[in-house]
């Protein structure tokens, strides 16, 4: 019995050192030497301050910015830590809505979102239906991308708010659209933060 337990104990210790410390530290060293930007979270700095990560959605509500997908992330309620409160784009507690497809409350919440998006984008709403990704929460709550259709839907609003022509804005969106990887994998995407940074650089808001 003891003879059997001894290798188990020893092996657990050795493997913990090898796989739990040596392996992650070695990968950390290699990663930071080879791909330092990605290894530190693809952070974006502006004027010496971190403004976010290229890979993590952040909230945009102003009309002059493109808006990301809805986020269902939460945080503990300050009043009662056992409960959670909605805290969109919380990059320290990712998650989706986990709403059931047959939930009345869920379908009503989507209806509210559709009405809100239509009210924000009256011109586009007159021309066609709202793309589904604009009114559904992403799985992580931190989806940095929207579909090209969702970007196109917002073009008239952003153009108006910035006082630029829709054609010029559309050209920027097209330029910032990432097609499927190798022309086949995944879906075409538009990174909202990158697009909004490009907007600020190219068409600053006149105040």
């Amino acid at each position: 019995m003891i003879k059997q337990l001894l290798p188990s104990l020893a092996l657990t210790i050795v493997l913990t050192l090898l796989l739990g410390l040596a392996y992650p530290f070695a990968v950390t060293g290699a990663a930071q030497a080879l791909f330092p930007r990605q290894a530190h979270g693809s952070l974006i700095e502006k004027d010496g301050r971190v403004i976010g990560s290229e890979l993590i959605a952040q909230g945009f509500a102003k009309p002059e910015y493109f808006h990301p997908r809805p986020s269902a992330t939460t945080a503990p309620d300050p009043a009662d830590p056992a409960k959670t409160i909605p805290t969109p784009y919380n990059a320290a507690n990712s998650g989706g809505s986990n709403a059931a497809p047959t939930s009345k409350a869920y379908v009503e919440s989507v209806r509210t979102l559709v009405e809100q998006v239509e009210a924000e984008n009256p011109e586009s709403a007159r021309n066609g239906p709202v793309p589904v990704d604009m009114v559904t929460a992403s799985g992580s709550g931190l989806d940095p991308d929207i579909s090209p259709e969702a970007a196109e839907f917002q073009v008239p609003r952003v153009a108006k708010a910035r006082g630029v022509s829709e054609e010029a804005l559309r050209a920027l969106v097209t330029d910032r659209t990432r097609p499927r990887t190798f022309g086949i994998l995944g879906e075409a995407t538009v990174n909202v933060l990158a697009l909004n940074l490009a907007l600020d650089a190219r068409f600053p808001v006149r105040r």
Binding site: R69, G96, S97, N98, A99, P101, Y106, V107, V110, R111, V114, G128, P129, V130, P131, V132, D133, V135, T136, A137, S138, G139, S140, D143, D145, I146, S147, P148, E149, A150, E152, G186, E187, A188, T189
Partner: peptide, 22 residues
């Protein structure tokens, strides 16, 4: 609700609740 759920080269379509665009 009158949403656009058609899939194409510029939109994922379908049931996007809980899914990522990429």
């Amino acid at each position: 609700l009158g949403l656009d759920v058609t899939a194409g080269d510029n939109a994922p379509g379908g049931n996007m609740e809980g899914k990522e665009v990429r």
